[in-house]
């Protein structure tokens, strides 16, 4: 077990092999604390490497994070800055960030709130995004859901369902080879719905946004709430 090791850091980098990573952004905190061993001078290394051990880190609110684990779970609580997270098989949960870039092969992705842009790439995993700005989400095989998108959305899935609930009038580009696509728009938003190439576009002449939704074999449903 390590000792508290205060440092000032613009970006905190954390990695493990199989150990889980748990980061908490605390209001009023001004330094970074880690459960890992500090360097001989008492400071944390540039990269916190927990190996197979669980790593717990406390950071000031708004801290930028770059984290990754091969098979360990990544959990980020509190309000942080720009987050980049990558796992092979570990689940990734992020509570509140300014922007997110998260990738996993088979671990589930859960992002509750992003004030800015959200990019998520999963090979075979479910992706759930809550409130976000621009969103660029890809899953090879796994359901994609965006609960409250408030910016341009691009969602791509090779095999899986896509569910998008828009918070405003923003363009949507959703594509899945096999799977249903559901796009829910606010009541007052008039969308130009662009279907498969060769088909006739349906929508208002003076539309507020453009929705492109293509499914190779699934149903496409674009509607107002």
């Amino acid at each position: 077990m390590g000792f508290p090791a205060p440092v000032q850091a613009a970006v905190v980098r954390i990695t493990t092999t199989s150990g889980s990573i748990h980061v908490v952004a605390e209001p009023g905190r001004t330094d970074v604390w880690s459960s890992t061993d500090p360097l001989d001078d008492g400071r944390l290394p540039a990269t916190i490497d927990g190996g197979a051990s669980r790593v717990r880190v406390r950071v000031p609110e708004g801290t930028d994070l770059v984290v990754g684990s091969t098979s360990g779970r990544v959990t980020i609580e509190g309000s942080v800055g720009a987050v980049s997270a990558m796992t092979n098989a570990g689940r990734v949960s992020i509570a509140d960030a300014e922007s997110v870039d998260v990738r996993t092969k088979s671990g589930r992705i859960e992002v509750k709130q992003v004030s800015g842009s959200c990019r998520a790439v999963a090979t075979s995993a479910r992706v759930e995004i809550g409130h976000c700005g621009d969103a660029d989400v890809t899953s090879g095989s796994g359901r994609i859901s965006l609960d409250d998108a408030n910016g341009r959305v691009h969602a791509h899935c090779s095999s899986g369902r896509i569910e998008i609930s828009m918070g405003g009038a923003h363009d949507v580009d959703a594509e899945t080879v096999s799977g249903r696509i559901t796009v829910s728009l606010p009541a007052a938003v008039r969308a130009l719905v662009v279907p498969l190439p060769g088909e006739v576009a349906v929508g208002a002449d003076d539309c507020d946004c453009v929705v492109v939704a293509r499914s190779g074999s699934g149903r496409v449903d674009v509607s107002n709430r």
Binding site: R13, D49, V66, G68, S84, N88, D101, R103
Partner: peptide, 20 residues
């Protein structure tokens, strides 16, 4: 270059940090 995170490759001890 935007940081993406670390990945590990079999046979390589240290993580490889990736950028987009």
């Amino acid at each position: 270059f935007r940081p993406v995170g670390p990945t590990r490759v079999k046979g390589v001890a240290s993580p490889i940090w990736l950028y987009r």
